[in-house]
């Protein structure tokens, strides 16, 4: 009774959530039955009902596949490196941009940093291959700076691939990653800095004591998403940069599944891997969410 009353009282609020809930039911929850393909043998000529059930067969195949585990290792390595660099650097960069006093310089730096985000990997990958070749842009720059005597082709060296994948992705996305932080900083009350300056706080103290704590919710949000996305990887990037020599370090889960799907015409396999990744991701999500709650007065960022 009491609940109903309360519900009626907040009917406007409930009416506001309703469209979102209806949307999710239609566009996210109705198609979710596609997950059952993970337990079927679903090929191109099948429909959901006609494909035969195979139980956990697909999962068994995956776990027994040594190439799959290699791709898991590469995915984790690349993602962890991306997590350490790609998570922290945009925060520093955003703070640095925020601290710029000259408006024009600020705008220019911001705009420049976003541009690479708009380049598709299909084309950028082609450029990167030539930049990283023996006489490419990269080696010529290093040689001009006296950091290197003789160039070699970096993409043929499997031991360099992880760095290439991480750094090129960072180059492309670092500026884009600052947007949310800059939006977050724009609501920090400038009088806080004023007061701190009066108290003689250095710039660094201002940043560590004011800027970063007030950014905590957004930082936590990004951390949560980054950690739960550890098993995800950039398919487009992998497909253009991978060659037969660096494959042992370049093959990631997504590209492996993509190739299996392509050559075997087996949709179930991809769904099964996807389902596995989703489950692990949610577990990681819950763990990081628990940890970051401490940063945000005990409440969760994500739910």
């Amino acid at each position: 009774m009491n609940t109903l009353k309360r519900l009626y009282k907040q009917r406007q609020l409930q009416l506001m959530v309703l469209p979102g809930i209806i949307f999710m039911i239609i566009f996210n929850y109705i198609p979710i039955y596609g997950i059952i393909t993970a337990f079927k043998r679903y090929t191109i000529v099948d429909s959901m009902s006609s494909a035969p059930w195979v139980g956990l067969e697909n999962f068994k195949l995956i776990v027994q596949d040594s190439f799959f585990w290699e791709s898991v290792r590469n995915t984790l390595a690349i993602s962890l490196m991306k997590l350490f660099l790609g998570f922290a650097i945009p925060i520093f960069l955003a703070i640095m941009i925020f601290e710029v006093k000259n408006m024009r310089f600020k705008k220019i730096v911001q705009t420049i940093s976003y541009i690479p985000h708009f380049f598709s990997w299909i084309v950028l990958g082609g450029m990167l291959i030539s930049w990283l070749s023996t006489d490419g842009f990269f080696n010529q720059t290093l040689m001009a700076l006296g950091l290197m005597h003789k160039g070699n082709n970096h993409l043929l060296d499997p031991s360099q691939y992880w760095w290439i994948a991480v750094l090129s992705d960072l180059w492309k996305e670092v500026g884009w990653g600052t947007i949310l932080y800059l939006a977050g900083m724009s609501r920090i009350d400038p009088t806080l800095y004023e007061a701190a300056r009066m108290d003689g706080a250095t710039k660094m103290t201002q940043i560590t004591r004011i800027t970063i704590p007030l950014l905590a919710p957004i930082i936590s949000l990004n951390l949560i998403l980054n950690v739960s996305g550890l098993l995800g990887s950039n398919l487009d990037q992998t497909l253009v940069l991978m060659n037969s020599q660096n494959q042992s370090h370049a093959e990631v889960i997504n590209s492996f599944v993509y190739r299996m799907g392509l050559t075997q015409g087996d949709f179930s396999y991809a769904t099964a891997v996807g389902l596995g990744i989703s489950i692990v991701s949610v577990i990681l999500l819950v763990i990081t969410d628990r940890i970051t709650r401490k940063l945000n007065d005990g409440h969760s960022i994500i739910v």
């Binding site: 769904t271 996807g274 949610v282």
Partner: peptide, 15 residues
């Protein structure tokens, strides 16, 4: 409900 939609989908064909 929302969080689940971030990680689970039915794939291309049901959509």
């Amino acid at each position: 409900m929302g969080v689940i939609t971030m990680y689970f989908g039915g794939g291309m064909i049901p959509t």
